[in-house]
Each structure stands twice: as C-alpha cells, then as structure tokens.
Simulated scan of single mutants.
Amino acid sequence: MTDLLAEQDAARLALRCLDLTNLNDDCDEDAIRALAERAVTRYGSVAALCVWPRFARLAREIAAPDVKIATVVVFPTGEATDEEAMEETRDALFEGADEIDMVIPWRELMEGRDASVRSRVERVKRAAGDAPVKAILETGVLESAAMMRRAADAAIEGGADFLKTSTGKVPVNATLSAAEILLTAISQADRPLGFKAAGGIRTTAEAWAYLEMADRIMGEGWASPQTFRFGASGLLDSLIATLNGAAPVTAAEGY
C-alpha cells in the first residue's frame, strides 16, 4: 500500500506538471478540442497544452483558464535565422501562446558554433518578453555527454527559462542520462531555471523516475509546474489509471 500511495503521489505531481501535447503532422481542430477536453481531470488540470502555432488561438479560446498554452518555434529542425525565430515567437504570442518551446540550432553546436545557440536563445527570449522560453536541446542527436552539457550551458547563457530534452521527432528522445546532465547544469546555474523531459515518456513509473532524479539533484520538493514539465500525450492515460488504482497503462505516444 505504501508503494501504491507513493506512486499515486508521483502521478498526481506528474499530472500537474504535464504539457499535454499534440504536435502530430495530421493534427486538426477536432484534435485540439479533444486535447483541451482531456486537460481537465477529476484529479486537477495539466500545466499546459502544447500545440502547433496555427492552433494556439483556438487552444487559448477553449482551454480552461488555469491551463497554459505552449507552442513551438523553428520546430522541429531548429533551422532558421535568428530573425525568423523572433518573428515566429512574436506571431505565436499574438495568437495566444503563453509559453514558447524553441529548438536550438543544434547542428551548429555540433560544428563547434556554441555562440549560435546563445544568440538564438537571446533573440527568442527578447521577442518573448515575459513569456517563459523552453530551449529544446535535441539531446538524442548530440554525440556525447560533453556536447549535451555545452548545449545546456549555451542555452542558459542565452537566457532560457527551461532546458528541454527533445522535440519528440527523432529516434532517441528523453532519457534519464540526458536528464541528469541537464538537471546538473540547472543546479549549477547562477539563476533559477526549469527542466522539461519530452518524448517517449508513457508510464507513471517512467515519470516517477524523472521526478526522483529531480529530487536527488535539485532537492526534494523542487519539482512543480513552475520548474518541471513533461511533454507527452499518452502519459496522461497512465497517470489517471494509477490515480484510479488500476493497473498501469502504456499508451501509444504520438509525440
């Protein structure tokens, strides 16, 4: 019973920290309406809906007031000029987005041009104003732990509010090893930042492992919707099943 209660506590926290996501290529308005309906549960609301920029206005109109709207910039490739990234950011905020998830120019980082990452984050943060900016590092394609740390440090120096692992659009997405690198960088930063694990997290047990790592590195109780997010679609089903006392559910993940 103690283990079940602990798992349910983790599920309750994970639900509150969830960016319920639909970034599928075939997403349409009906899918956004369905996403918004799922965002409010008997156990509370998710942190945010994460949608394509073209659906930000609709999502803001139909989402519960306490659910943020997150959208993506230069997604999923990160290939754009700084000016294009800034324009996308301003347009997304105009359409109703509350939070910006931006892809860093990770290919340039792999070529040794770390300053490009700092510049991109600085420019997007400037365009975003007070809106939180989550820098997507695409850790699954970076070649080493050292490169992941370089990406994290450059994004921090650029002013990112969150470090996010992945787009969910590459073969390797969120991993605990990448999370440890990013959380360690956050713990050593000279200002507060948040962390977002995205892509491939489907079960309460998997989410719990990330929350336990955050407790270990950042301190017990650090993780909250203000500091920690999961980017997922199918995870919600498993969290609800856990909170209902049912057997864990592994849902098909669209993101």
Results as ranks from 00 to 15, higher is better:
residue 140 G to F: 04
residue 155 A to I: 05
residue 220 E to T: 13
residue 112 G to D: 11
residue 3 D to G: 01
residue 212 E to L: 02
residue 230 F to E: 11
residue 169 K to G: 10
residue 76 P to M: 02
residue 10 A to S: 14
residue 243 L to N: 01
residue 203 T to D: 03
residue 186 I to E: 07
residue 198 A to N: 10
residue 255 Y to R: 09
residue 186 I to D: 08
residue 88 E to G: 04
residue 123 R to L: 01
residue 204 T to W: 03
residue 148 M to S: 08
residue 187 S to G: 00
residue 73 V to S: 05
residue 254 G to P: 01
residue 129 G to A: 08
residue 74 V to M: 03
residue 187 S to Y: 02
residue 169 K to V: 03
residue 72 V to D: 01
residue 31 A to F: 08
residue 69 I to Q: 03
residue 83 E to Q: 12
residue 130 D to M: 10
residue 180 E to L: 02
residue 234 G to F: 00
residue 183 L to Y: 04
residue 120 R to L: 01
residue 47 A to R: 14
residue 29 E to K: 09
residue 216 R to A: 15
residue 214 A to L: 01
residue 119 S to L: 04
residue 190 D to V: 02
residue 134 K to T: 09
residue 140 G to D: 06
residue 239 L to P: 00
residue 220 E to L: 01
residue 236 L to R: 04
residue 98 D to P: 06
residue 239 L to V: 06
residue 193 L to C: 14
residue 243 L to D: 02
residue 49 L to W: 11
residue 164 K to I: 09
residue 224 S to A: 15
residue 162 F to G: 13
residue 55 F to R: 11
residue 37 E to P: 00
residue 141 V to I: 13
residue 186 I to T: 00
residue 207 A to G: 10
residue 119 S to P: 00
residue 239 L to E: 05
residue 217 I to T: 12
residue 113 R to H: 14
residue 85 A to C: 06
